[in-house]
């Protein structure tokens, strides 16, 4: 085969691999792109002031100019949803970033050192893993007061071991590879082998896991906000909105809870699906 032929084969293979995302995968990606866009520019997109209260419009349904109607305090629902996207994603982003970095670092240390380091860290992962994240969040919120930062820290403590456990197993296999030994014989330092070679080779796995984790994070943080342990009212936030809509729901005005809940679920599903598809595409299930 000529070089050009090889190149074209490689290109087709790439294309066919991207098609592994499938219709659902692309759909998930599209949803995420929209959400990210809204999270970035929500305030500019919002037709109204999301915090302007007008009791006269409380729980009023859709009217021209207000396609989703109003919440229980007469605030424009669409505006609150759009603005709330940011606060609903900033938390998960911080959570995923923190726990991915921490989980990856610990897993690599465990896999590299093996022996008692590994045994200690693995036991630590298992113990922390057994402790429910929500319970931990309630505990920390009681100690330090409720707020997004506390909720993120609590869930980081809960998420880190689950990624750590998963990644440790994969990292053990990777660090056991012959090329790692070959690098050692070439006189490469441990840090260099791990950071420059092992870590990049694990990246597909880590990225896919982080995306899946992001889906869970939106739900869990939304849940904590719903319980009043995360984002605090009156900040527009999907979790807060689900909770705030609850009384109205009982009175027969489900729009706020449904709309915010749908956004949360849609985000969680989209991230889960995309992460799963990527993992399958990269062969790191």
């Amino acid at each position: 085969m000529s070089v050009a032929q090889v190149a074209s084969v490689v290109r087709t293979r790439r294309r066919s691999r991207l098609s592994h995302l499938g219709v659902i995968g692309w759909l998930a990606l599209a949803v995420i792109v929209v959400f990210v866009f809204v999270a970035a520019f929500g305030e500019a997109l919002a037709p109204d002031d999301p915090n302007a209260i007008d009791i006269a419009y409380a729980n009023v349904g859709p009217i021209p100019g207000h396609p989703l109607g109003f919440d229980d305090l007469g605030r424009d629902l669409l505006s609150r949803l759009l603005v709330g996207a940011r606060s609903s994603f900033v938390g998960p982003l911080a959570l995923v970033a923190l726990s991915t970095v921490a989980g990856t670092t610990l897993a690599l240390i465990a896999a590299w050192r093996r022996g008692w380091t590994d045994a200690t860290l693995s036991a630590g992962f298992d113990i922390a893993f057994a402790f429910p994240g929500i319970l931990l969040a309630i505990l920390l919120a009681t100690l330090f007061g409720a707020g997004l930062a506390v909720a993120v820290i609590a869930l980081t403590l809960a998420y880190t071991p689950s990624l750590g456990r998963l990644l440790r197993a994969t990292a053990l296999r990777e660090t056991g590879m012959e090329y790692v030994k070959a690098f050692r014989v070439m006189g490469y330092s441990d840090v260099r082998i791990v950071v420059r070679h092992v870590l990049p080779n694990l990246m597909p796995f880590i990225i896919a896991q982080a995306i899946i984790m992001f889906g869970y994070a939106t739900l869990d943080l939304g849940g904590l906000s719903f319980l009043g342990l995360g984002v605090q009212p009156p900040t527009a936030d999907w979790g807060v909105m689900v909770a705030a809509g609850a009384p109205a729901l009982l009175q027969g005005y489900p729009t706020q809870t449904l709309a915010a809940g749908t956004c949360l679920v849609l985000a969680a599903v989209a991230f889960g699906v995309l992460g799963d598809r990527l993992a399958r595409m990269w062969g790191v299930e």
């Binding site: 090329y179 050692r184 070439m186 006189g187 490469y188 070679h197 080779n201």
Partner: peptide, 25 residues
Amino acid sequence: RLRRYRSSQVAMIFQDPRAAINPVR
């Protein structure tokens, strides 16, 4: 010293080159 020894005085050729070279570089 061990790193210097490995990097300049001794070299190893492994059984399976496909396993002994990082496949993604």
